[in-house]
Simulated assay, not measured.
Amino acid sequence: MTEYKLAATAAMGLEGIVADEVKALGFDTVTENGKVYFSGGPEAIAKTNMWLRTADRIRVIVGEFKATTFDELFEKTKALPWEQFLPVDAAFPVAGKSVKSILFSVPDCQAIVKKAIAERLKTAYGRIGFLDETGPLFKLEISILKDKATLTIDSSGAGLHKRGYRVGQGDAPLKETLAAALVKLTKWNPDRPFADPFCGSGTIPIEAAMLGQNLAPGYNREFVSEQWPWIAESVWDRVREEVEDVADYDRKLMITGSDWDPAMIRVAEKNAAEAGFLDIIEWKTCDVKDLRLEGQNGVLVGNPPYGERLGEREEAEEITATLGRLMESYPSWSTYMLSSLDNFETLYGKRATKKRKLFNGFIRTDFYQYWGKRS
């Protein structure tokens, strides 16, 4: 079986979590900034796309080499075995980026790579003139970092955060992959209560329910590589059958999502219905000061307002202080909050047991963790 060098791309700060997920699927990993490398055949591509909760994309690495001139970029790109990946009618747009490299003009690099691949394919398939590009899509990228060129093919299509259940969202939705990472960082298990007091469109509770019932995050969507001729349809069939085999649909969960805005609760309910969790997650319209938690040894996870906009910081600070006072009444519960407030611990009234730097989009945040006392 042919093996490929693969990379699961990750948001800054999530590489370790992504690596753990890849290892759990049975692959050895090497981690660098923003990437987790591993090797595998077509089934590895299908399986990681289907199961990775916190990765952004799965890329197939076609080649890596040093390039400091356009001639070098052209010839080394052309020397790669593109016919092993792209059929004669492949549509292959080329994206690009260049950082700290002599070849800094991204449009020129894209055009040269496109031309080199076309020349290779025409020779390999005995074609003269233009390639029609009417067949399956192969989204290529030329990335140059410190003069090292890496050519990859995106096997995911839409980013892996696109689970397929989000039919509505608020003004600042949390990415599904980050929401899943927050849940995984709590070490929550489905025997414990779980609550999100700032649920917005419901992403964190839905990701918790998906994890709690061991449901693959890609079960409700398609991937661009499903159209690739060298990944047999039977491979995808096997991976999807496994999703059904291991899903624990009967697992009872104690998950609650609440928000002060009834309009957002309605959006959350629609998203939960699309994901198949409408009757599994309890939704409440509730201000944080009125929150009441049921059960012992629960996990409270949230993405409270940051107060990034003018005039909103005071409100965000008051919410944080209110939350800190509230949780004094629930000593067995563990609290995990993602915030950009630099005075979060002061406002909360307690130093975090642990905190972890993460990025919510381009906003630098900390994930504050307060571990409860088991009752």
Rank of each mutant, 00 (worst) to 15 (best):
M1Y: 14
T2A: 13
E3P: 04
A11K: 09
L14Y: 04
E15F: 00
E15I: 02
G16N: 14
N33S: 15
N33M: 12
Y37E: 03
F38A: 06
S39E: 14
E43S: 01
E43N: 01
A46H: 00
A46E: 00
T48N: 07
T48Q: 04
W51Q: 09
R59D: 14
V60P: 09
T68V: 14
F70G: 11
F70E: 13
T77E: 00
T77F: 02
K78D: 07
A79E: 09
L80T: 03
W82A: 01
E83G: 12
V88F: 11
P93Q: 07
A95K: 13
G96F: 09
S98T: 08
V99F: 10
K100E: 12
L103A: 08
S105Y: 12
D108W: 05
C109F: 09
A111K: 15
I112G: 01
K115I: 03
A118L: 03
A118W: 04
E119Y: 07
R120G: 06
A124D: 14
I128K: 15
L140H: 03
E141W: 11
I142Q: 03
D147C: 02
I153A: 01
I153Q: 01
Y165K: 13
G168M: 07
G168D: 11
A172Y: 10
L174S: 02
L178A: 02
A181T: 10
L182T: 13
V183M: 01
V183D: 00
L185T: 06
D191A: 15
P193W: 09
P193S: 12
A195I: 14
P197K: 05
F198I: 08
F198S: 10
C199I: 06
I206W: 13
I206Y: 12
E207N: 10
L211R: 03
Q213N: 06
N214M: 06
N214C: 05
V224R: 07
E226G: 11
I231T: 06
E233D: 12
S234K: 14
W236L: 01
E242F: 12
E242A: 07
D250N: 14
T256L: 13
T256N: 13
S258N: 11
P262F: 05
A268V: 01
K270M: 11
E274D: 08
A275M: 10
D279W: 09
I281R: 01
E282C: 11
C286S: 13
K289S: 13
E294W: 08
Q296W: 12
N297L: 04
G298L: 06
L300Q: 08
G302D: 02
R309E: 09
I319M: 05
T320Y: 09
E328K: 15
E328Q: 15
W333E: 05
Y336M: 12
N343Q: 07
F344L: 00
T346W: 06
L347P: 00
A352Q: 07
F359A: 05
F359I: 04
T365H: 08
G372V: 01
S375N: 12
